[in-house]
């Protein structure tokens, strides 16, 4: 390389250029808002210009509420809808602001980031999906696609855990998935009188699902403790540890492998995850404060 004699005075990069830098969110608008349960809101976003980002179920976006901050939120819709659905649980400053957005509000979007559930590879195998709480959000797209596989291309069993019946998100989807032939078992931690569904830990309904454990693939998402317990129960049932896919979670600031926050031992979860085979990462989940 020759010394830049001529362009010496010029800026290496232009100032104030709107571009597609890794950290720059694109403005999207909220076009629909749905209250799922107390403290959980879904928003549908479309870009101010251009097409929405292409994505696969399991991936996430970094969503910015301008002036508040940016957080990682999975896509909870179905690919190809033309709008991006995200389902957010109000737990802190940014998620609270996201839940509070209304139709017409601007939300910044960067993505799509991370690994996906890989539903494309799941033709002809039994799939058992286990989700807990808001963990159903990143799985909604995967379940919707799997439920529409041609018949005979593998069974679909869904086990859902929730705190209580009124905390179940996507309740109407559960009916649709059942109608499409999926076995869907819902179990809650506690219920008011009159609840005719199950009460108990989500692992308790696994024996009632009729998947062929030796050939099944499992997709698991929920709080980390729940994922560990479910994964062990599935292994006990005969599902191969490498056939169990879990979605990992750690503090995220950048989403693109540059800020160092999402480390879990050898992994940068935003870059190498969030979806990983349980067999590969079981030891990491077992290590305290890792």
């Amino acid at each position: 390389m020759i010394a830049p004699t001529e362009d010496a005075g010029r800026a290496v990069a232009d100032g104030a250029a709107t571009g597609t830098g890794a950290f720059t969110p694109a403005p999207y608008r909220v076009v629909e808002r749905r209250v799922e349960t107390d403290g959980v809101v879904s928003v549908a976003l479309v870009p101010d210009s251009g097409e929405p980002v292409a994505w696969r179920p399991g991936q996430f976006n970094m969503l910015t509420v301008f002036g508040v901050g940016e957080v990682a939120i999975s896509m909870s819709g179905v690919p190809g809808e033309g709008r991006l659905w995200h389902t957010v649980r109000d737990v802190g400053a940014v998620s609270h602001a996201l839940c509070g957005t209304g139709v017409g509000d601007v939300v910044g979007v960067r993505g799509a980031y991370g690994t996906a559930w890989g539903v494309e590879e799941l033709d002809g195998v039994d799939v058992v999906v286990v989700a807990g709480g808001i963990g159903l959000a990143p799985l909604r797209g995967a379940i919707s696609l799997l439920a529409r596989r041609p018949s005979g291309r593998g069974r679909l069993c869904v086990a859902l855990g929730a705190r209580s019946p009124d905390q179940v998100i996507f309740a109407e989807d559960l009916e649709i998935w059942r109608e499409l032939g999926a076995e869907v078992e819902l179990t809650v931690d506690a219920a008011a009188p009159g609840w005719t569904g199950s009460v108990g830990l989500v692992t308790a309904v696994l024996p009632q699902l009729s998947f062929d454990a030796g050939r099944a693939v499992a997709l698991v998402c929920g709080p980390e403790i729940m994922m560990r317990i479910v994964a062990r129960a599935l292994v006990d049932r005969g599902v191969a540890a490498d056939a169990i896919r879990v979605s990992l979670e750690r503090n995220m600031q950048c989403g693109v492998g540059l800020c160092g926050h999402c480390q879990l031992g050898p992994l940068l979860i935003c870059r190498d995850g969030p979806v990983r085979a349980y067999g590969e990462i079981a030891h990491l989940l077992g290590e305290r404060e890792r």
């Binding site: 830049p4 010496a8 005075g9 800026a11 290496v12 990069a13 232009d14 100032g15 104030a16 250029a17 709107t18 571009g19 830098g21 720059t24 969110p25 694109a26 403005p27 101010d48 601007v106 910044g108």
Partner: peptide, 13 residues
């Protein structure tokens, strides 16, 4: 209208 402008420093090599 909403827009996001990247900030780059005008920097000599």
């Amino acid at each position: 209208d909403a827009g996001v402008d990247e900030v780059r420093d005008a920097r000599r090599p």
